[in-house]
Design a protein around this nucleic acid. Structure first.
Lengths: 327, 327
DNA sequence: ATGAAAGCGCTAACAT
DNA sequence: ATGTTAGCGCTTTCAT
């Protein structure tokens, strides 16, 4: 139905090989015939079938991205960075939401592989790395790390330390950490780093577990005020949770930051816009996405990577949920 | 490199046709040989090459989704709905962010088409409908409408009316509408419907233009308080903008909802969690995504659609940014 | 500089 | 019930 390379060949009065040559600017082709072919392509509005190309070359223009949940505001920023870079280079992004479930993660990876994706960006763990290795396709881990693969991530340890340090500087006696799932490595790391700093400074610290969603934050907030009513500082595992707690605190009539300070993690765009503004640790998500795409394409194009791990610094963004004047 | 159907055939001591038959459960194949083939497949860990399949059948397992910006919290919910449905049916989602730019929209559509996507879900306008029609591939519009294609969308007119009606019921004298880009149809419709109701009720109404982002909302808020300081009710084009305004109002010391009421649009999950909670018009984004995927697959499977347009009702979600007690 | 033809991995006639 | 083979649309030797 669609117009194929044969049609173009016929229209231009040449062979398909010649058309292919001009398409790929490979081999020799006379200027005149080249022009004739181009003309025919224009006239027929021909677009090469990427599937046929992919089959022959065993290389597609698809990149697979598997992430936990696009609904968590941290990830759209990441994904957007990836997508923007890919778009410029003519690649397409296939997305899979794994919900951190190993089974889904692997199904996505296998599905992507079957479709000749040329590269994988992975923002989730428990991946079937064996399958990836045997497929020998470039991979970059995003927001996660392993020694075995190139990775782009933000410095979680620095982030955790920063949060703890800042909250200590601003004064606190009893801090409650809302810890995310310990199975998620970056989330665990930021927790651990913060916890250690707090302990080293002889602070009383409580731990409450939560998921990474607003909804979980809301539930957790109730638990927080019941179990640890004397908390005067909270370090949340991410911004959605922090915002939920902020909200609940105000509902309960607490003054923020006077009665209680809060620091989040991620710096999603919402955080600047809630009231009071949320102090948080900024992760440069968009830039990380960009970089991940960049080094993935480098690998795809056989370029050597200057390094394997790209650790982005994080920074403390101070808004109204902490006391600016240091104590 | 990878194991192909030939390898399986050899391993099982049959022809490739037989293997293909068991793979597709088409044609006759003896139970015993069937088992032998299955065994071989297991042993070799064979996975069919979807690209080759796609080339022959001219059908892939890919669905293209083009949306304005995954970074706008309304769209991840939509995308997640689409993806969840697709995943269950073994399809994969390719995503493109168009930023409402016609050029990007079309590049995506063409790119997707070249890769044999079997269906398209489109949440943006200015699409090259001609290309889609000649490609003869199923399409569903999501959050947008045209008579020519199946569409899944929420009732914007009802939404606009609802917002206006509720704000009137709750009492107001001068309402300012933050109107989104008039080029985006659903956004324009909700504006228009609200405006008409307000006018019919002889309210004084001001209009300010904004984009659909938090950042734009923040700028707009400043304009709002300068130009229309007597505003006692605002209807925002979407929740991010509404939240930005809420925030700015509080910063300026206004009591919400006493001094000023605000109603948003979308009901993104953040809206329940800011303080005061944002009253808004709920669009069932996730369900809409699910439905769009469902009717797309129906078309792909040659099933007849019982109807072309799936209009979802919206609802008013009342939180603290409006005065509950009717006046 | 150009063409003929093989082949990428698969499916679907068509034979047997 | 199973095998042989053509062909999906393209790229790439290998001839010429």
């Amino acid at each position: 139905m669609a117009v194929t390379i044969r049609d173009v060949a016929k229209e231009a009065g040449v062979s398909v090989a010649t058309v292919s040559r001009v398409l790929n600017s490979s081999g020799y082709v006379h200027e005149d015939t080249r022009d004739a072919v181009m003309d025919a392509i224009k006239r027929l509005n021909y677009k090469p079938n990427e599937v046929a190309r992919s089959l022959y070359k065993k290389k597609s223009k698809f990149i697979g991205l598997v992430l936990p949940d696009i609904t968590n505001p941290f990830f759209p920023a990441l994904a957007r960075g990836v997508e923007d870079f890919l778009y410029r280079e003519g690649y397409h992004l296939i997305i899979g939401n794994s919900d951190e479930q190993m089974e889904k993660e692997n199904e996505y990876v296998h599905g992507f592989l079957q479709n000749n994706v040329v590269g994988l960006i992975i923002s989730t763990h428990d991946i079937d790395f064996h399958a990836i290795k045997t497929a020998k396709i470039p991979v970059v881990l995003l927001d996660r790390t392993t020694d075995e693969f190139p990775a782009v991530y933000a410095d979680q340890i620095q982030g955790g330390k920063l949060a703890a340090t800042k909250i200590i500087e601003r004064g606190c006696h009893e801090v409650t950490i809302i810890r995310g799932p310990v199975t998620i490595k970056p989330v665990y790391e930021r927790f651990r780093a913060a916890y250690d700093v707090l302990k080293k400074n002889n602070k009383k610290v409580n731990i409450i577990d939560a998921q990474l969603t607003f909804e979980s934050g809301q539930k957790t907030a109730k638990e927080l005020f019941e179990k640890y009513p004397n908390t005067d500082a909270v370090l949340a595992c991410n911004d959605p949770v922090a915002i939920a707690i902020l909200n609940e605190a105000i509902k309960q009539g607490r003054q923020i930051p006077e009665d209680m300070q809060i620091i989040g993690f991620d710096n999603i765009s919402m955080s600047s816009v809630v009231h009071p503004g949320l102090s948080t640790i900024n992760q440069p998500a968009y830039e990380m996405g960009l970089k991940a795409a960049e080094i993935l394409l480098k690998q795809i194009n056989q370029e050597k990577l200057t390094k394997i791990h790209y650790k982005f610094p994080v920074s403390f963004i101070e808004r109204e949920s902490t006391r600016k004047e240091e104590k």
